[in-house]
């Protein structure tokens, strides 16, 4: 677990970033860094699910293609857990085909961004999801 926002701010909501590429985590983290919520990172699907269970985040930014559990699997786990009903999910993927987008949205993702994406666009989506 890597956190950039100081811990101990339990009142703040949490956002989980899950991507196996460190450069992508850095980019997303830098993009959405805010005092309004706390950001944690996970480097693969299993770690992402562990983070979700631990922090009960308001939002998860999930890379679809990850070693271990894929982003779609983690999404399925989140959607299957009633206690995580309030958790929003935005998928990030290098897959650009329509079928992939559809399957992601059917699985319950709130939004879907295709790499490469605009960081400002991402930020907008994140703020929308968190209703800031």
């Amino acid at each position: 677990m890597r956190t950039r926002t100081p811990p101990g701010l339990q009142v703040l909501r949490t956002v989980v970033i899950a991507d196996d590429e460190s450069s992508m985590r850095l980019l997303v983290h830098a993009t959405i860094e805010s005092d309004d919520y706390c950001v944690v990172e996970a480097a693969d699907g299993a770690e992402a699910w562990a983070m979700v269970q631990k922090h009960r985040p308001a939002l998860v930014l999930l890379d679809v293609q990850m070693p271990g559990r894929s982003g779609l699997e983690v999404l399925g786990l989140i959607k299957a857990d009633p206690s995580l009903a309030a958790t929003r999910v935005i998928l990030l993927t290098a897959k650009a085909q329509e079928t992939d987008i559809e399957s992601g949205l059917i699985a319950g993702a709130d939004f879907y961004l295709t790499k490469p994406f605009s960081p400002l666009d991402l930020l907008t989506r994140v703020e929308e999801a968190l209703q800031l």
Binding site: E21, L27, A94
Partner: peptide, 21 residues
């Protein structure tokens, strides 16, 4: 290939945009 290229491209484009904006 296009799939493999998207990840590095996402970083380059993304950071460039951050630097610009």
């Amino acid at each position: 290939v296009s799939h493999e290229m998207r990840t590095p491209l996402a970083s380059i484009v993304g950071f460039a945009e951050l630097l610009v904006t």
